[in-house]
Nucleic acid binder design. Structure first.
Length: 285
DNA sequence: AACAGCCCCAACCGCGACAGG
DNA sequence: CCCTGTCGCGGTTGGGGCTGT
């Protein structure tokens, strides 16, 4: 019979948002910060479900959204990231400041897919369209890669999850240092889809490097670190976005209203990966 | 001008992950 | 360990705008 609805639907609006609804949501989040989406609509006087409010804010109202056309550089970055990450739109969006996962997903489906097909590339596999799976698929199940290895994405049956790449990088001490400087992805070109990772041996100077700079934080298992619930965090700072935004917890609505736990934060302040979700606007004056 | 078909994107839906009780 | 509530992600949809006839 499926799950129960995410919220009371009898008295909620659906469909396009009005300017008045937008303004209410903006005003409320300005005053109280993001978070606690479930209770936000009622508190903000909106006849919407929390999910809808969250989506509207994240995809449309957030002040740091770039909007407007994608640049050629963004196009290429999306293509490269997609070849590595697959349809992990939120991860891809994390590398494009001011762009949302929804926006990138839409753009992929409407523009980039077509662009790749016109180049003769399969948008899902990033392989030439005419190539058959039998011709390119590995003959045996892949064995675990050594610490530093070449990863040939041409022969990968599916895009490698970023965590898997990081694990293979063998730089785990306290946590992942991030892929920056650990795994350098090299592509001869998007067209030939000849992507490998460091330490590559051939034509390094002539190949374009894609510095993913994906900073990944691991949960540190340290009881003394009680800054944020059971999990401590490492900052996840994206290029571009960090110029005005610094990691700073504590603008979650729950926390604002005093619902936080004894350590000062509620779970809404933190992503499941252990990263802070809330950023405090740094006064630029 | 009117209509049909297409395109795009904002919004919705379902599900998995996770935390807390 | 199980159940429930919540969040966030990825896939899908539908309506408005655009273009061609």
């Amino acid at each position: 019979m499926g799950r129960s609805p995410c919220c009371e639907k009898a008295h909620t609006n659906k469909g396009a948002w009005t300017k008045e609804e937008d303004q209410r949501l903006i005003d409320y989040i300005r005053r109280h910060g993001e978070g606690c989406w479930r209770s936000l609509p009622k508190a903000a006087g909106l006849l919407r479900c929390g999910k809808s409010c969250r989506l509207r804010w994240i995809n449309y109202l957030r002040p740091d959204l770039k909007r407007g056309n994608f640049t050629e550089e963004e196009d290429e970055l999306i293509i490269k990231l997609h070849s590595l990450l697959g349809n992990k739109w939120s991860l891809i969006a994390g590398r494009l400041p001011g762009r949302t996962d929804n926006e990138i997903k839409n753009y992929w489906n409407t523009h980039i897919k077509r662009k790749l097909i016109s180049r003769g590339i399969d948008p899902q596999t990033h392989r030439p369209l005419e190539s058959t799976p039998a011709a390119t698929a590995p003959t045996a199940a892949p064995t675990p890669a050594p610490a530093t290895t070449n990863i040939d994405f041409r022969s990968s049956p599916a895009p490698l999850p970023v965590a898997e790449i990081a694990l293979m990088s063998s730089t785990l001490d306290y946590g992942f240092k991030g892929l920056n400087g650990i795994v350098k992805t090299k592509c001869d070109s998007v067209e030939d889809n000849n992507c490998t990772t460091s330490g590559m041996t051939t034509d390094e100077e002539s190949q374009e490097e894609l510095n993913l700079d994906l900073s990944i934080g691991l949960v540190r298992n340290n009881n003394n670190d009680n800054h944020h619930s059971k999990k401590s965090t490492q900052a996840l700072i994206f290029n571009g976005a960090e110029s005005k935004l610094q990691q700073a917890p504590g603008v979650c609505l729950c926390c604002q209203l005093g619902f936080q736990s004894s350590d000062g934060f509620c779970r809404n302040c933190q992503n499941r990966d252990g990263f802070f979700r809330f950023y405090r606007q740094i006064d630029s004056s």
